[in-house]
Design a protein around this nucleic acid. Structure first.
Length: 541
RNA sequence: GCGCCCGUGGCUCAGUUGGAUAGAGCGUUGGACUACGAAUCCAAAGGUCGCAGGUUCGAAUCCUGCCGGGCGCGCCA
């Protein structure tokens, strides 16, 4: 697929305003919330009133005073000056055939503006099991990666392994403490150590299986491999695992520090080296690059790491997804990238927190005491599909109340099953049709007469599946994955509605074939949409 | 005190980035299975979009000030 209906309309409107008024303006296109207003609308005439000095409806008439793009059957001026467009039946029917012909590539675009994009997410400290916020980050990050790929970008996913610094040292000390404790030695837990029970289990495993290995390295690798395993199970793939400790050896950190010094952006205060972030970005506070003991602070290494993404690896855009406790970091990193000449290339997405709700109450968690609901417990509890769905069905910047009871339910109340059920139902109908002797092989190539699809329910479905690509584009461009689950929910709804009103396999052979082609296209769309979200489309359930 | 996020039917959330009569799901009430899957469908009730100003043809959306909730504010990461 090269170009969407939305783009066709935008290009046409652009051409018209240039021809008529010699004005270049980005026309806004939207799907009207009321089907009486057609498939696509624009408010362009309102936008032009000032420049053109005419009433909106006059402008609308002038714009329409020529042939409209062929994909539309008609266009009308409505209200005070909207222009509404209706897709032609030919276009809708061709669309069904095309979806069935290219089920796997549907909703994927090639773009001449293709960019090299890196998206970094999760990047949890390798000091313990992944938590719920990491799970949310995994669901959102992997889905955004899928979306950006869908609209034609080259996307690399990366997990930054923070295998250096203070936290890792504390992990090692806590681990040694647990080992000593099991051996019955009298030792004390380090201050700020990790109290979680998991270290006790690991300590036992270490003593039994690999007592000869370096305990610090062993525990790090152990936790890291567990994190990798759970993320893979959560259908979250990383192209790259980037090690902080390796990176620290490359000399890049020193170089970046020197560059900041040369730019006059570093000062000393109480023995530490500070970055003048506030001079570049008013929202950012100055922060420490080198501590008074000579150690690099986390902020400095992170600046060098992000600079590396642009300078050594050539990404055009980098998205970094951070948890809510890192929002102060956002302005700092952006100011540092600006200082190094990478204006507006780093986009930091702050993901808000997750509250687990059980029996109407918030589940209390304390990381300090090691009392947290971990990602693997969650997946065990509600399943990958439901978990991904619930994480994705909210805007990233919204706080998320994750209702465990609802997610566990495999019933009608759980939206993810509602969507999957629509898919499974279609597969079931296809099997039924096949058994009845309907020739559903090669449904995309036979001469199916889609003009048989005249009922309003069929018409709604044709229109809805045609707009799938618009939803993908919107979701990708705005980095808002939740658009896809919402779209799928609506599609499933109008499919179920159609199903109860009309028989797919009926007495009329031509109509049967047309409807089989229609539902087959719907199934393909559901499958594509769910695939973007990392959710399975089951043939049976 | 400063910063970030949020405030939309009883509950959880959408609202196409300033557009047409504010929409879904759950819950509630009442209906629909002797033909393709009832994990479904249909219908009804339920709203001063936290409050008050402002910007304009037009505001749930933008600006200002309050109110309420969550999170952060370290030479930790």
């Amino acid at each position: 697929m090269k170009i969407s209906i939305e783009q066709i309309l935008i290009q046409w409107l652009n051409k018209r305003t240039k021809q008529l008024y010699d004005i270049e303006i980005a026309p806004e296109i939207f799907e009207p919330d009321n089907f009486e207003f057609g498939d696509l609308s624009t408010n362009l005439p309102f936008k032009l009133t000032k420049a053109v000095r005419k009433a909106p409806n006059i402008i609308g008439q002038e714009i329409l005073n020529t042939d409209i793009p062929k994909i539309f059957s008609q266009a009308q001026i409505a209200g005070a000056g909207y222009i509404n467009f209706w897709l032609s039946d030919d276009y809708l029917h061709n669309n069904i055939i095309n979806i069935n012909k290219h089920p796997d590539e549907w909703g994927k675009f090639s773009t001449e503006y293709s960019k090299n994009i890196q998206i970094e997410f999760v990047s949890a400290n390798p000091t313990g099991p992944l938590n719920i916020v990491s799970a949310r980050a995994a669901a959102v990050g992997s889905t955004i990666a899928n979306l950006l790929e869908s609209i034609g970008h080259n996307v690399i996913t990366e997990f930054y392994v923070n295998d250096a610094g203070n936290q890792v040292r504390l992990l090692g000390e806590s681990f040694l403490y647990r080992i000593a404790q099991i051996k019955g030695e009298n030792v004390e837990m380090p201050e700020d150590g990790y109290l979680g029970e998991y270290l006790v289990d690991y300590a036992r495993e270490y003593i039994e299986k690999s007592p000869d290995e370096n305990p610090n390295e062993w525990i790090l690798q152990k936790i890291l491999s567990e994190q990798k395993e759970i993320l893979a199970r959560f259908r979250t793939h990383f192209d790259s695992w980037f090690s902080e400790s390796e990176f620290r050896k490359t000399g890049k950190v020193e170089q970046v520090l020197q560059r900041l010094i040369d730019k006059g952006l570093v000062y000393e205060y109480e023995g530490a080296k500070w970055f003048k972030a506030s001079q570049i970005n008013l929202d950012a506070k100055d922060f420490v690059l080198v501590k008074s003991d000579g150690q690099w602070a986390y902020g400095l290494v992170d600046i060098a790491y992000h600079a590396n993404k642009f300078e050594e690896r050539g990404f055009d855009i980098v998205y970094t997804i951070l948890g809510p406790d890192h929002h102060g970091h956002k302005a700092r990193m952006e100011s540092a990238m600006k200082a190094l000449g990478h204006d507006d290339k780093l986009k930091i997405i702050i993901l808000q927190q997750v509250n687990l709700i059980e029996q109407g109450n918030k589940v209390k968690m304390s990381k300090r005491a090691g009392k947290i609901i971990t990602m693997d417990v969650l997946l065990e509890d509600v399943g990958v599909d439901a978990a991904r769905y619930f994480f994705l069905a909210r805007k990233a910047e919204s706080h998320l109340d994750f209702d465990l009871d609802l997610a566990r339910k495999t019933s009608d109340e759980n939206p993810v099953y509602y969507i999957q059920y629509a898919y499974a139902r279609i597969q079931s109908i296809s099997r039924f049709a096949k058994n009845k002797g309907v020739n559903i092989e090669n449904i995309e190539t036979q001469s199916v007469d889609l003009s048989m699809l005249t009922r309003p329910e069929e018409n709604n479905l044709c229109r809805k599946i045609t707009k799938y690509s618009i939803s993908v584009q919107n979701a990708a461009e705005s980095l808002q994955p939740h658009i896809i689950p919402f779209y799928l929910l609506e599609l499933a709804k109008i499919f179920h509605n159609f199903y109860t009103k009309h028989k797919v396999v009926c007495d009329d052979e031509k109509l049967t074939l047309a409807r089989v082609a229609l539902i087959s296209a719907i199934a393909n769309i559901i499958k594509c949409g769910l695939a973007i979200c990392g959710i399975e489309a089951p043939n049976e359930m």
